[in-house]
Design a protein around this nucleic acid. Structure first.
Ligand code: SF4
Ligand code: SF4
Lengths: 143, 143
DNA sequence: TTTATTTAAGACTTTATACTCTTAAATCTA
DNA sequence: TAGATTTAAGAGTATAAAGTCTTAAATAAA
């Protein structure tokens, strides 16, 4: 469904959003990796993409790190997925056909197309802000 | 979402079901591969799994090939996916957590869990028979 | 200005998936 | 029985994803 790089990216963004709600500092990637039990090396690589795509702002040197480059209500899970994995999940055919036309659809199009649409809407509608509120509301949330 | 091996498997099973509606012969893997524009070698490997799991019956020698081992109404897309890819798509966490309890869920569980359930039902409910009927009904179906 | 800290970038290694080929076994037909 | 056909099984190769490491650049603080 999603690559591990993408899953890690989402978890990191949630962590950043949660932390940023309180303090507006840059958060070091090492801290994020440690707290989420991820490889620092791997996470660094992943977050670089989000920086390039304008979802994170980064700063080097002591007290450096990353922070959200936009209001958390303006960053959706779709944005993160698109940045890391591309839009294949939302556009590709369930049977793997390269070209897909509604004129000559495959045998499961009627079943798959609406589901794919639901998936798109789900991720598009879910913002870091909403997730952050969910975390505040509940007690036992795994990060 | 699905591996290419799994997509190929589904396409092959649809092809077999469609053909078997008319004649009850064994269908050679070479014929399937040619018609679906797939590698004979790769497809052979993939279909072996479906044979082992009891969804296909195979026969060697001239006029040999494969045929459905069950009524096409008894083979769902879920069965095929399970046989080739395993059940990861239907059980795994969207954030990649190994263990997942409803007691301490992740921040997107409330959104993801129902969607995963829908996906499961969709594939579980869609049988080769239903797909075959869809193909008969429509004119321009890509195989 | 020197040293420590932190991200950026690219090379590199490992692992998993995708794909190919060869040989063996089963079966039909001449 | 000999030869052709077709799947089975396993080895082998190629490509992509995952993960690691090294060096450079930016910055802060001593
Ligand atoms: S029409 Fe069929 S082939 Fe095309 S995207 Fe839809 S499901 Fe896939
Ligand atoms: S509770 Fe969260 S971590 Fe567990 S499966 Fe659901 S979405 Fe994934």
């Amino acid at each position: 469904m999603l690559t591990t790089a993408c899953k890690d990216a989402i978890r990191a963004m949630i962590y950043i959003a949660k932390k940023q709600k309180n303090i507006d500092n840059f958060i070091s990637i090492k801290e994020i990796a440690n707290n989420l039990d991820l490889s620092f090396y791997f996470l660094s690589k992943i977050l670089q993409k989000l920086v390039k795509d304008g979802f994170l702002e980064s700063y080097r040197g002591p007290n450096g790190g990353v922070k959200l480059a936009k209001p958390m209500g303006d960053i959706s899970l779709y944005d993160i997925i698109l940045s890391i994995d591309g839009d294949d999940v939302f556009t590709q055919c369930i049977l793997g056909f390269k070209e897909c036309s509604d004129i000559k659809p495959c045998a499961v199009h009627e079943k798959w197309a609406p589901e794919r649409e639901r998936l798109y809407n789900l991720f598009k509608d879910t913002t870091l802000e909403e997730i952050e509120e969910e975390i505040e509301k509940k007690i036992n949330i795994k990060l």
